[in-house]
């Protein structure tokens, strides 16, 4: 049995293998817009390694978390700004 964790992305539950990043969980739910840019464009992850800050989302109430550097924990509440 593979170990999994379940997080909520905009209220939708998604189950991921242990060690998965929040960015992968968000994309798995079908959400591609992680945030809106300064002029309102949709944006999602670019570099996948914590440098571009395009994948910022709100995690458990804390804004501007880089979802590609944050490991999924059971019960996490993730909100995109799409």
């Amino acid at each position: 049995m593979p170990e999994t964790v379940t997080v909520a992305v905009n209220g939708v539950s998604v189950t991921m293998p242990v060690g998965s990043m929040v960015s992968a969980a968000i994309l798995k739910t079908g959400v591609t817009t992680f945030r809106r840019s300064a002029t309102g464009e949709p944006r999602g992850p670019l570099c996948g390694m914590g440098r571009c800050f395009e994948c910022r989302v709100t995690i458990d109430g804390e804004e501007h978390c880089r979802s590609c550097q944050t490991v999924c924990r059971d019960g996490m509440d993730v909100r995109t700004d799409g």
């Binding site: 293998p17 998965s20 990043m21 960015s23 798995k28 590609c68």
Partner: peptide, 8 residues
């Protein structure tokens, strides 16, 4: 690749 390696 990083995203796929981490669960996508």
């Amino acid at each position: 690749q990083a995203l796929v390696k981490t669960g996508l």
